[in-house]
Design a protein around this nucleic acid. Structure first.
Length: 242
DNA sequence: GCGACAG
DNA sequence: ATCTTGTCGC
């Protein structure tokens, strides 16, 4: 069971949530990733239209093969609304619950959302990273804050995202002629490394495999196509049964 | 006051 | 995020 830190309550008002972000932002560490990557995970959540039921999931893939080795899926409830800048308070509680059931701990986690490319430099990828104390990368599909110049149309090209004079992330083209993604430091990693890792997990789609797989799974869960719980590699048939 | 605004 | 069919383009 993967562990995590309980640094604050989740049952807070938007005003209190902002205070928590301003207090915890100093805990984000920007450093070189230690050791090689053996496993990489993706985390995401899905919702029904106007419901407060959330379907969360964490998927662990072997790196660089990107074959699934572990997963944690669960259905729970949320009350905090979606407010730009406070996404973490709506999705992280469910992601933490899924995270604690993971058995194969990844060396890095990619989250669907911003890392420090956030008004208070504490987007969901940074928040989640600080809580699980693991390297995390924020990979969002659209802009939250900052300015940038359109990166060249070919895969692999990128430009920097700026806000109040500082680089807060990168606008990365993961496929030719396709809308770029917004990559930013989550926790315990550098932007350069984040960009390389995201590119190394692209397999023909705009979204990196970890979060793409997580997204596919939580949607299947929401549609009732698969069940909650954890699962690892296909059960190996006993050598003595036939 | 007006516009922007991750999922 | 989710609601949804066809359609344009490589």
């Amino acid at each position: 069971m993967a562990n995590y830190k309980t640094l604050h309550h989740w049952d807070v008002t938007p005003e209190e949530a902002i205070k928590i972000q301003n207090k915890l932002r100093s805990l984000v560490k920007i450093e070189a990733l230690q050791g090689e990557i053996r496993y990489i995970a993706g985390a995401d959540v899905s919702f029904d239209k106007g419901s407060n039921i959330v379907y969360a999931g964490v998927v662990v893939l072997k790196f660089p093969e990107l074959e699934e080795v572990d997963r944690s899926l669960l259905i729970t409830e949320v009350n905090f609304p979606y407010i730009p800048g406070l996404l973490s308070f709506r999705e992280s509680p469910a992601l933490i619950k899924a995270w604690e059931k993971i058995k194969i701990e990844p060396d890095v986690v990619i989250i669907d959302g911003q890392g420090i490319a956030h008004p208070r430099r504490f987007g969901i990828a940074s928040h989640f990273g600080v809580l699980i104390d693991k390297p995390t990368i924020g990979c969002a599909k659209s802009l939250l804050v900052g300015k940038y110049e359109e990166p060249s149309p070919k895969a692999g090209n990128y430009s920097y995202l700026y806000d109040s004079g500082e680089i807060i992330g990168a606008v990365l083209r993961t496929r030719d002629e396709v809308q770029p993604v917004f990559v930013s430091i989550g926790h315990k990693i550098t932007l350069e490394s984040s960009i390389k890792i995201v590119l190394s997990t692209i397999r023909g789609y705009r979204i990196p495999e970890p979060t793409r797989q997580a997204h596919i799974l939580v949607n299947a869960l929401r549609r009732g196509e698969i069940k909650p719980g954890t699962k690892t590699k296909p059960e190996q048939d006993s050598l003595f049964s036939f």
